[in-house]
Structure formats: structure tokens, C-alpha cells
Computed example of a mutant assay.
Amino acid sequence: MSRVLEFEGIRNFRHFGEYAACDGAKVRANLFRSGHFHNATEADKSRLADLNISVVADLRRPRERENEPSSWGEGLRILQSDVAGHAEPPHLQFLREGDLSREGVTGFMRSAYQRLPNEKGNQEVFAAGLRELATHGADEGFVVHCAAGKDRTGIFCALALSLADVGKDDIYDDYLMTNTAVDYDTLIPVVQKRLKDMFGRDVKEDVMKVFLGVDEEFLDVAFQEIGSAERYARDVLGLSDDEIAAVRTNLIAG
């Protein structure tokens, strides 16, 4: 079964549950990760309703949410942070002013993965999302997303799966799946035109793939910042040992 769910206006939507954990256990279903939902069509919204999603962890900054607001139905618990205020997101500032060579973009992505685990807004939503996963009903859907569903979302999913004792290979496979889940042949020209219209900048296709995709090295950088998932959850995110244990217990299918 493919982990990727196809939508008309939503990119990179897929399962991040049902991986094998230790001792023959398995992570439960109804766990989803995605890019933003601003372009969701009516057909997409209908399909989302069928997934019985009750909690949405939105890792975007306030300005991103204002520029591309999501349209959700009633009764959902939305987790988000206003810590970053209305400042321009770092990735937009880089696209406007930064070195858009392949080396420059790769360097930006490395620095982003050093920064993301340490940003207070991300930490706030990471903590809230993990606490939800510690108590969330197994028959209810949970979705975490950012703008593209790959960097902030990728770090959150890697943390959650690590706390559930999923093996490193599966954690990295889940992270790297963005590179096959997204139709870059369609997406890259759209983003190239947007950058030209917004900032007057031309970006080569191979450089766009670095910026829009993921690389094992980037997640390595994030984990170098995080250290062990348990230590980060406890000492940085503020979860108690009981909450950390509950995340694992509740993520494992019965």
C-alpha cells in the first residue's frame, strides 16, 4: 500500500504511522503529515473529512498562515504558535536576498536544520503535538504540516517515531519520501515563476530540487542539534518522563 495520498490541491500528504517499532510492535494508523492546505479543493476537503482528523499541528509562522490560510471545518483542535510574530520567514528572506547557487542553497538548508529544532515557535508546536499524541484516540486522525511538509514537519515526525522506538532506517525513509511523493516536474516551474514574479530572481532547476527536496544530511544536522529524542523532549520541550512514556505507549497499536 502506498503511503502517499493523492489530493488535487494538497502536496506531500501521506501516512507516517504503521512503521515497525521494537519487540515486534507497530505504530498505529491515522497519523498523517502534509504540506499546507491553502489550495485544498472542495473534493480535497471532502476526502479530508473522511479521514476523521481531529487535531491539526500547524508549524507555520503567523505570516505564513496569513499569506496562505487553511480552511478547516468545525470541531478541530488546531495547534499553532504566534511566537515568531509577523516577521518575514527565514526561507523567504533567503530567496529574496541569499546566494541561490547550488552551494548557497545547500548551505542555507544545513543552517536551517541547525536552527529549526531551536526555534521557540517550533518547540511550542512540537511539544503540543507530542502531548496530543500521548492521549489522542487511535480512531481519530492526527495531521502535522508546515508549508511544504518536509523540514519542520520532517523533524517532528522523526521525533515522534524516535520516541516510539522506530528504527533509524524507517525514520529516514519516512523523511526522504518527500523526494518521491512530490511531483517536481510540475512544482518546480510553478515555484520558479513565483520567485521571478516576487523577487525578480532566476533559479536553476537543479538548485530548486535542493531547496524543495530533502537530503539525509539535513536530518543528520537536526539530530546533531537534538541529541537523543528523549532528552530533547524532556529538557527542551518540557515533557515529563511520564508524558514521554505515554507518547510511546499511545503510538503503539494495540
Results as ranks from 00 to 15, higher is better:
E68N: 15
L51R: 10
E243Y: 10
H136Y: 01
Q192F: 09
Q93E: 11
N118Q: 12
L48K: 02
I53Q: 03
H145Q: 01
A222G: 06
N67I: 12
L163M: 09
Q93D: 11
I171V: 12
N67P: 11
R102D: 03
L212K: 01
V191M: 15
L212G: 06
K168S: 08
Y232S: 08
R14K: 06
S240E: 09
D151M: 00
F32N: 03
G75K: 15
A40F: 10
D242M: 13
A128D: 02
Y172N: 12
A245N: 11
V214Q: 04
D215C: 09
E103L: 12
L59K: 08
I252S: 11
L51W: 06
K204Y: 09
M109G: 00
R248F: 09
S2G: 14
N52K: 13
N12G: 07
I252Y: 12
A233I: 10
G167I: 03
A25K: 12
F156T: 03
I171H: 01
G227C: 02
V214I: 10
L76V: 11
L31V: 07
R65E: 13
T180Q: 15
S228I: 10
G98W: 02
L130A: 08
R96F: 09
P189C: 08
V143R: 04
G154D: 06
M1T: 14
G9Y: 13
E64K: 06
L79K: 08
V144S: 05
Y113E: 04
L100R: 01
D202W: 13
L133K: 06
T186I: 04
R77I: 14
T180R: 15
D50Q: 13
D151S: 04
P89T: 07
A40M: 12
L48F: 07
K26I: 14
I10Y: 05
S2E: 15
S162A: 12
L239P: 05
L161F: 07
A25I: 09
C157M: 10
I155A: 02
E68G: 14
T249H: 11
E97Y: 03
L48S: 06
